[in-house]
Computed example of a mutant assay.
Amino acid sequence: MNLAFIIIDDSELDCFIAKKIIQQNDKSIMVATYTDAIAALRQINDNTDMHSDLLTIILLDLRLPIMSGFEFVEEFERLPLSIRNRYVIYVLSSSMNRNDKSRVDSNENIVKMMDKPLTKAAFETIVTEVVAGKR
């Protein structure tokens, strides 16, 4: 299975860490980072025909300026199913808020919430789950 990653986090350090972990484990995986959820959403919407054979895993922070992670998911849900089916969303957050966890758990477009920053073990779990089809 061909995989790619999109990291959406306003912390450049967390983006850097996640990208490094992904590339250290598999240099062939394409990784795009965004500190702005609106720019990431625009890119997803604009590249509807590019890399249609790739399944892209989105690592999404919840606390973002301008457009929060939850607002990103709401906008993502408005995209055509043909686009949405090519993406899997995991939330990476340092939030301990029960309401956030509950909202994530109840959203069918989010696989699960994991602690940030991304670790090698979390990366391996995500890839294993996605490849096994547990998304």
Rank of each mutant, 00 (worst) to 15 (best):
V88K: 07
D61N: 01
G69N: 02
V88A: 06
Y90L: 04
L79R: 03
D46I: 10
R86E: 02
D46A: 15
L62G: 14
M50E: 08
T56K: 11
I66V: 10
G69M: 03
V73Q: 00
E74L: 02
R63E: 09
F70I: 07
H51Q: 15
I58P: 05
F70T: 03
P65K: 10
Y90P: 02
V73S: 02
T48A: 02
E77N: 04
F70W: 01
E74N: 03
S102T: 06
E77S: 04
Q43G: 00
N47T: 15
Y87F: 10
L64F: 08
I57T: 07
P80E: 05
R98F: 12
R78E: 15
F70A: 09
M50H: 02
I83V: 10
K101Q: 11
S52W: 03
R78I: 12
R42W: 06
M50Q: 11
D61S: 06
I58D: 05
L92I: 10
L64P: 13
S102W: 02
R63L: 13
R103H: 06
T56E: 06
T56Q: 03
R63G: 12
S82H: 05
A40I: 11
Y90C: 03
S93E: 09
R63C: 11
V88F: 05
N97H: 11
M67T: 05
G69A: 00
N85T: 02
S94C: 09
F76R: 00
R78V: 11
F72P: 01
N99S: 09
S95C: 09
T56W: 11
F76M: 06
I89A: 01
F76H: 07
H51R: 15
F76V: 12
E71R: 14
L81Y: 08
M50W: 04
L55Q: 14
N45L: 07
L81D: 03
E77P: 04
E71F: 01
S102Y: 03
Q43H: 04
R103Q: 09
E75N: 04
R98L: 13
E71T: 10
L54N: 14
H51F: 13
V88R: 14
D61R: 08
S93I: 13
